[in-house]
Design a protein around this nucleic acid. Structure first.
Lengths: 193, 193
DNA sequence: AGATAAGTGGAGCAGCTACTCCGCTTATGG
DNA sequence: CCATAAGCGGAGTAGCTGCTCCACTTATCT
């Protein structure tokens, strides 16, 4: 089951393809043609299809990359002593991701109700880790006891919806957005609790 | 500029096409073929294209329908005396819409960063009406004074994201979801405000 | 009922794009 | 520096789907 060891140039081409795919998907959306990706990478389409058997596989690889990165981010947040600090740093890291992978976050959210088994299982891991983070806050007494933990986790995750973020970015800096989101998530909108 | 008065059968066909489009889009997603819609409606494809010049126009008509309905919903909420009551009834009405038009809400959210002028302008109207609702709550003293009004409006709107709703629907009834969302939106997650 | 214009159906066309095939190029090991 | 197998490019193919065309049907009006 070990990889057959790629020739040096082949390996380089693969890397350039992945970078190109990110760039093209970011600019043209996930419906962009494979041809354009190959062109940007400076290789023939055949090379693209030697690395990713189908277009679908290419997209899946990209989504998987984002999911893994988000998974690591949540794990780091969970490792923090204070749950609220964890949530804050999660938001900061998540928004940083949006600048790089924004286009994929839409897919990331959509994949929540798709049945592409592979994506779904990772999605569930992410959600349950987030749930654990919330649960920890409840146990420590810093988050409400009567919280709907799953909904809370989902609402943290949806802070990362690209349309919202981009909309706000037009008039606010990242710091301001994080603060406002934290404020809303933690304390809500009402005056009397 | 007045409509040329359709023949009775033509009018009926148009209605059936719209219903079929809703049904097919709901089941197969927005990428479904036009042919399938025509078949479900029991008419030829030519009839579909006589009513909607292009596929795009058909989709646009559907999105517009959802936006208009949402617009009315927000206006009703805004007309209510108490802003919090308004938000609560908005959520209830919105979730009811999700059962019927769920598939379109994704587009509805996506259209927020697209530049299809027509959709965007309606989207802005909806958002600013929601902003006004929040503002009213602030003025009445039931919502925090230091709120980021635009973000608050956006977070109310994103309560309607289909993936979230569908995910929760699997284990909770609508009433429970509305309560949990209201609870989170108004009072947040933290114990000490 | 007959005239007629409004509406219809569906075969087929056109354009688009994922993917294949194979003759050629080039890295690699001896 | 050669042999060779690993990798490459890109023209071309296959299949899919939005949309058109026009011979035919049918609602409507008198």
């Amino acid at each position: 089951m070990n990889e057959p060891v790629l020739r040096a140039d082949a390996r380089a081409n693969r890397t350039r393809l992945i970078e190109a795919a990110h760039a093209v998907f970011r600019e043209r959306g996930l419906d962009a043609e494979t041809k354009e990706i190959a062109e940007l990478a400076g290789v023939g389409i055949a090379t693209l299809y030697r690395n990713f058997a189908t277009r679908e596989e290419l997209v899946a690889a990209m989504v998987a990359e984002v999911q893994e990165r988000m998974q690591r981010t949540v794990r780091v947040a969970l490792a923090q002593d204070d749950a609220i600090d964890g949530i804050r740093s999660l938001l900061q890291a998540g928004f940083a991701m949006l600048d790089e992978y924004g286009y994929l976050m839409t897919v990331f959210h959509e994949s929540m109700h798709e049945d592409s088994a592979k994506h779904l299982s990772k999605q569930h891991e992410i959600l349950s880790a987030l749930g654990a983070l919330v649960q920890k806050g409840v146990a420590a007494g810093v988050l409400r006891r009567n919280l709907d933990v799953e909904l809370a986790a989902l609402r943290i995750l949806t802070s990362f919806l690209p349309p919202i973020y981009q909309h706000l970015r037009e008039t606010r800096d990242v710091e301001t957005i994080v603060d406002a989101q934290i404020q809303l998530l933690l304390h809500g909108m009402a005056t009397n609790p």
